[in-house]
Computed example of a mutant assay.
Amino acid sequence: MSATLKLVLFDVDGTLVDSQGDIVAAMARAFAAVDAPLPERAKLLSIVGLSLDVAMPTLAPDQTEAAHQKMIESYKTAYMELRAQVGVAQSSPLYPGAMDALRSLQAVPEFLLGIATGKSRRGLDKLIEGHALDGLFMTQQVADFHPSKPHPSMILQAMQDAGVEPADTVMVGDTSFDMEMARAAGVRGIGVNWGYHPAERLGDAHVVIDDYAELAPVLDRIWSMPR
Protein backbone atom coordinates (compact mmCIF):
# COMPACT_ATOMS: atom_id res chain seq x y z
CA MET A 1 0.00 0.00 0.00
CA SER A 2 1.47 3.35 -1.01
CA ALA A 3 2.02 6.10 1.56
CA THR A 4 -0.55 8.90 1.79
CA LEU A 5 0.58 12.06 0.02
CA LYS A 6 1.26 15.07 2.24
CA LEU A 7 1.19 18.70 1.09
CA VAL A 8 3.43 21.34 2.69
CA LEU A 9 2.51 24.86 1.59
CA PHE A 10 4.83 27.83 2.13
CA ASP A 11 4.25 31.54 2.26
CA VAL A 12 7.09 33.47 0.61
CA ASP A 13 7.87 36.95 2.00
CA GLY A 14 8.85 36.67 5.65
CA THR A 15 8.81 32.87 5.51
CA LEU A 16 11.14 31.69 2.74
CA VAL A 17 12.79 35.02 1.89
CA ASP A 18 13.54 38.26 3.73
CA SER A 19 12.35 40.95 1.33
CA GLN A 20 11.57 43.66 3.86
CA GLY A 21 14.16 46.10 2.52
CA ASP A 22 12.61 46.18 -0.93
CA ILE A 23 9.07 46.13 0.46
CA VAL A 24 9.66 49.20 2.62
CA ALA A 25 11.53 51.05 -0.14
CA ALA A 26 8.82 50.28 -2.69
CA MET A 27 6.15 51.41 -0.24
CA ALA A 28 8.01 54.69 0.21
CA ARG A 29 7.79 55.24 -3.55
CA ALA A 30 4.10 54.31 -3.54
CA PHE A 31 3.20 56.82 -0.84
CA ALA A 32 5.34 59.51 -2.45
CA ALA A 33 3.41 59.00 -5.70
CA VAL A 34 0.25 60.35 -4.03
CA ASP A 35 2.00 62.76 -1.63
CA ALA A 36 0.81 60.76 1.38
CA PRO A 37 2.75 60.42 4.65
CA LEU A 38 4.65 57.14 4.93
CA PRO A 39 3.57 54.94 7.87
CA GLU A 40 6.16 53.58 10.26
CA ARG A 41 8.18 50.57 9.16
CA ALA A 42 6.38 48.22 11.56
CA LYS A 43 3.03 49.27 10.11
CA LEU A 44 4.26 48.67 6.57
CA LEU A 45 5.51 45.20 7.42
CA SER A 46 2.31 44.35 9.28
CA ILE A 47 0.40 44.07 5.97
CA VAL A 48 2.93 41.81 4.21
CA GLY A 49 1.01 38.82 2.90
CA LEU A 50 -2.07 40.76 1.91
CA SER A 51 -2.71 41.37 -1.77
CA LEU A 52 -1.85 44.91 -2.81
CA ASP A 53 -5.48 45.79 -3.52
CA VAL A 54 -6.19 45.10 0.14
CA ALA A 55 -2.88 46.32 1.58
CA MET A 56 -3.01 49.84 0.16
CA PRO A 57 -6.48 50.73 1.48
CA THR A 58 -5.45 49.24 4.82
CA LEU A 59 -2.36 51.44 5.01
CA ALA A 60 -3.92 54.54 3.47
CA PRO A 61 -7.67 54.46 4.25
CA ASP A 62 -8.10 58.18 3.56
CA GLN A 63 -6.92 57.93 -0.05
CA THR A 64 -9.29 57.51 -2.97
CA GLU A 65 -9.65 54.36 -5.03
CA ALA A 66 -7.78 56.06 -7.87
CA ALA A 67 -4.96 56.96 -5.50
CA HIS A 68 -4.78 53.39 -4.23
CA GLN A 69 -4.44 52.15 -7.81
CA LYS A 70 -1.66 54.66 -8.45
CA MET A 71 0.09 53.47 -5.29
CA ILE A 72 -0.18 49.86 -6.41
CA GLU A 73 1.34 50.60 -9.82
CA SER A 74 4.10 52.71 -8.25
CA TYR A 75 4.87 49.92 -5.79
CA LYS A 76 5.09 47.29 -8.52
CA THR A 77 7.38 49.45 -10.66
CA ALA A 78 9.63 50.31 -7.74
CA TYR A 79 9.86 46.70 -6.56
CA MET A 80 10.91 45.52 -10.03
CA GLU A 81 13.51 48.28 -10.31
CA LEU A 82 14.96 47.57 -6.89
CA ARG A 83 15.17 43.85 -7.61
CA ALA A 84 16.84 44.49 -10.95
CA GLN A 85 19.52 46.67 -9.36
CA VAL A 86 21.06 43.97 -7.17
CA GLY A 87 19.44 40.69 -8.22
CA VAL A 88 16.97 38.45 -6.42
CA ALA A 89 19.50 36.60 -4.25
CA GLN A 90 20.63 39.85 -2.62
CA SER A 91 17.32 41.69 -2.83
CA SER A 92 15.28 38.87 -1.24
CA PRO A 93 17.71 36.43 0.40
CA LEU A 94 16.53 33.06 1.60
CA TYR A 95 16.31 32.72 5.36
CA PRO A 96 18.96 30.52 6.99
CA GLY A 97 18.12 26.86 6.59
CA ALA A 98 15.32 27.44 4.09
CA MET A 99 17.00 25.78 1.11
CA ASP A 100 18.18 22.77 3.13
CA ALA A 101 14.67 22.31 4.55
CA LEU A 102 13.07 22.48 1.10
CA ARG A 103 15.51 20.00 -0.40
CA SER A 104 15.10 17.60 2.52
CA LEU A 105 11.32 17.68 2.27
CA GLN A 106 11.46 17.25 -1.49
CA ALA A 107 13.49 14.08 -0.98
CA VAL A 108 10.62 12.44 0.94
CA PRO A 109 8.59 10.56 -1.71
CA GLU A 110 5.16 11.22 -0.18
CA PHE A 111 5.76 14.96 0.40
CA LEU A 112 4.51 17.52 -2.10
CA LEU A 113 5.59 21.16 -1.77
CA GLY A 114 3.60 24.23 -2.73
CA ILE A 115 3.41 28.01 -2.50
CA ALA A 116 0.58 30.24 -1.29
CA THR A 117 1.69 33.86 -1.56
CA GLY A 118 0.43 37.40 -1.87
CA LYS A 119 3.04 37.90 -4.59
CA SER A 120 2.08 38.22 -8.24
CA ARG A 121 2.79 35.46 -10.75
CA ARG A 122 5.56 37.59 -12.23
CA GLY A 123 7.10 38.27 -8.85
CA LEU A 124 7.08 34.63 -7.81
CA ASP A 125 8.56 33.53 -11.15
CA LYS A 126 11.45 35.97 -10.70
CA LEU A 127 12.09 34.75 -7.18
CA ILE A 128 12.03 31.07 -8.17
CA GLU A 129 14.42 31.78 -11.03
CA GLY A 130 16.75 33.90 -8.88
CA HIS A 131 17.08 31.27 -6.18
CA ALA A 132 17.14 28.25 -8.52
CA LEU A 133 13.96 26.81 -6.97
CA ASP A 134 12.62 25.44 -10.25
CA GLY A 135 10.86 22.11 -9.89
CA LEU A 136 10.44 22.31 -6.11
CA PHE A 137 6.82 23.42 -5.91
CA MET A 138 4.15 21.35 -7.65
CA THR A 139 1.42 23.90 -6.91
CA GLN A 140 1.95 27.66 -6.89
CA GLN A 141 -0.90 29.92 -5.78
CA VAL A 142 -0.45 33.67 -6.30
CA ALA A 143 -2.41 36.86 -5.76
CA ASP A 144 -3.37 37.26 -9.42
CA PHE A 145 -5.97 34.50 -9.26
CA HIS A 146 -7.29 34.52 -5.69
CA PRO A 147 -8.90 36.73 -3.07
CA SER A 148 -6.40 38.12 -0.59
CA LYS A 149 -5.37 36.12 2.43
CA PRO A 150 -6.87 35.11 4.84
CA HIS A 151 -9.49 33.85 2.38
CA PRO A 152 -8.85 30.09 2.03
CA SER A 153 -9.00 30.04 -1.78
CA MET A 154 -5.25 29.52 -2.27
CA ILE A 155 -5.08 26.52 0.03
CA LEU A 156 -8.26 24.99 -1.33
CA GLN A 157 -6.93 25.21 -4.89
CA ALA A 158 -3.53 23.85 -3.85
CA MET A 159 -5.17 20.83 -2.23
CA GLN A 160 -7.23 20.25 -5.34
CA ASP A 161 -4.10 20.46 -7.52
CA ALA A 162 -2.29 17.97 -5.32
CA GLY A 163 -5.22 15.65 -4.66
CA VAL A 164 -4.59 15.93 -0.93
CA GLU A 165 -7.05 16.15 1.97
CA PRO A 166 -7.02 18.88 4.67
CA ALA A 167 -5.74 16.43 7.29
CA ASP A 168 -2.69 15.84 5.10
CA THR A 169 -1.95 19.52 4.44
CA VAL A 170 -0.07 22.14 6.44
CA MET A 171 0.53 25.83 5.80
CA VAL A 172 3.86 27.35 6.84
CA GLY A 173 3.85 31.12 7.24
CA ASP A 174 4.96 34.11 9.27
CA THR A 175 1.78 36.17 9.55
CA SER A 176 -1.61 36.00 11.17
CA PHE A 177 -3.06 36.08 7.65
CA ASP A 178 -1.35 32.76 6.86
CA MET A 179 -2.57 31.13 10.04
CA GLU A 180 -6.13 32.44 9.64
CA MET A 181 -6.12 31.22 6.04
CA ALA A 182 -5.02 27.76 7.23
CA ARG A 183 -7.78 27.64 9.83
CA ALA A 184 -10.38 28.77 7.27
CA ALA A 185 -9.27 25.97 4.93
CA GLY A 186 -9.41 23.35 7.67
CA VAL A 187 -5.66 22.66 7.67
CA ARG A 188 -3.02 23.05 10.34
CA GLY A 189 -0.78 26.11 10.34
CA ILE A 190 2.89 26.17 11.31
CA GLY A 191 3.97 29.66 12.26
CA VAL A 192 7.57 30.83 11.93
CA ASN A 193 9.12 33.16 14.45
CA TRP A 194 11.49 35.00 12.10
CA GLY A 195 9.07 36.88 9.84
CA TYR A 196 7.03 40.06 9.89
CA HIS A 197 4.41 39.31 12.55
CA PRO A 198 5.46 38.62 16.15
CA ALA A 199 4.70 35.18 17.56
CA GLU A 200 1.90 36.55 19.73
CA ARG A 201 -0.07 37.38 16.56
CA LEU A 202 0.09 33.78 15.35
CA GLY A 203 -2.64 32.55 17.66
CA ASP A 204 -4.23 30.35 15.02
CA ALA A 205 -0.99 28.40 14.52
CA HIS A 206 -0.89 24.74 15.52
CA VAL A 207 2.74 25.36 16.51
CA VAL A 208 5.34 28.11 16.07
CA ILE A 209 8.93 27.21 15.18
CA ASP A 210 12.08 29.25 15.75
CA ASP A 211 14.33 27.62 13.14
CA TYR A 212 13.96 25.69 9.91
CA ALA A 213 15.66 22.74 11.57
CA GLU A 214 12.49 22.29 13.63
CA LEU A 215 10.19 21.93 10.62
CA ALA A 216 10.73 18.25 9.73
CA PRO A 217 10.32 17.02 13.34
CA VAL A 218 7.15 19.12 13.72
CA LEU A 219 5.72 17.63 10.53
CA ASP A 220 6.52 14.13 11.79
CA ARG A 221 4.64 14.86 15.04
CA ILE A 222 1.64 16.38 13.27
CA TRP A 223 1.23 13.50 10.86
CA SER A 224 1.84 10.79 13.45
CA MET A 225 -1.25 11.94 15.34
CA PRO A 226 -4.39 9.80 14.94
CA ARG A 227 -6.45 10.90 11.96
Results as ranks from 00 to 15, higher is better:
residue 7 L to C: 05
residue 9 L to Y: 05
residue 11 D to P: 10
residue 12 V to E: 11
residue 13 D to H: 00
residue 17 V to W: 01
residue 20 Q to T: 04
residue 20 Q to K: 13
residue 20 Q to C: 08
residue 29 R to N: 09
residue 30 A to K: 03
residue 30 A to E: 04
residue 30 A to Q: 04
residue 34 V to G: 04
residue 39 P to S: 13
residue 39 P to Q: 11
residue 40 E to I: 01
residue 48 V to N: 04
residue 50 L to G: 07
residue 50 L to T: 06
residue 50 L to C: 06
residue 51 S to T: 15
residue 53 D to G: 02
residue 54 V to T: 11
residue 56 M to N: 00
residue 56 M to E: 02
residue 62 D to K: 15
residue 66 A to P: 06
residue 67 A to Y: 05
residue 73 E to Y: 07
residue 76 K to G: 03
residue 77 T to G: 05
residue 77 T to S: 14
residue 78 A to E: 13
residue 82 L to C: 08
residue 83 R to Y: 08
residue 90 Q to D: 15
residue 92 S to T: 13
residue 94 L to F: 00
residue 99 M to F: 01
residue 101 A to L: 10
residue 101 A to C: 12
residue 103 R to H: 13
residue 104 S to W: 01
residue 108 V to S: 06
residue 109 P to N: 10
residue 110 E to H: 12
residue 110 E to Y: 01
residue 110 E to K: 07
residue 111 F to S: 00
residue 112 L to K: 12
residue 113 L to I: 11
residue 114 G to M: 07
residue 116 A to S: 09
residue 123 G to C: 08
residue 124 L to N: 05
residue 127 L to F: 14
residue 127 L to G: 14
residue 127 L to A: 13
residue 128 I to T: 08
residue 128 I to Y: 03
residue 128 I to R: 02
residue 129 E to F: 09
residue 129 E to K: 13
residue 131 H to E: 07
residue 134 D to M: 12
residue 136 L to G: 08
residue 137 F to S: 04
residue 140 Q to W: 02
residue 143 A to T: 15
residue 144 D to S: 10
residue 144 D to V: 12
residue 146 H to E: 00
residue 148 S to V: 05
residue 154 M to N: 09
residue 157 Q to V: 14
residue 158 A to G: 08
residue 159 M to L: 11
residue 162 A to I: 08
residue 163 G to A: 14
residue 164 V to P: 02
residue 165 E to I: 10
residue 170 V to F: 04
residue 174 D to A: 02
residue 175 T to F: 05
residue 184 A to H: 02
residue 194 W to E: 11
residue 196 Y to I: 01
residue 205 A to H: 01
residue 207 V to Q: 05
residue 211 D to S: 10
residue 213 A to R: 09
residue 215 L to Y: 11
residue 216 A to N: 04
residue 217 P to E: 09
residue 218 V to Y: 02
residue 219 L to M: 08
residue 223 W to L: 10
residue 225 M to F: 05
residue 225 M to L: 14
residue 226 P to D: 12
residue 226 P to A: 11
residue 227 R to Q: 09
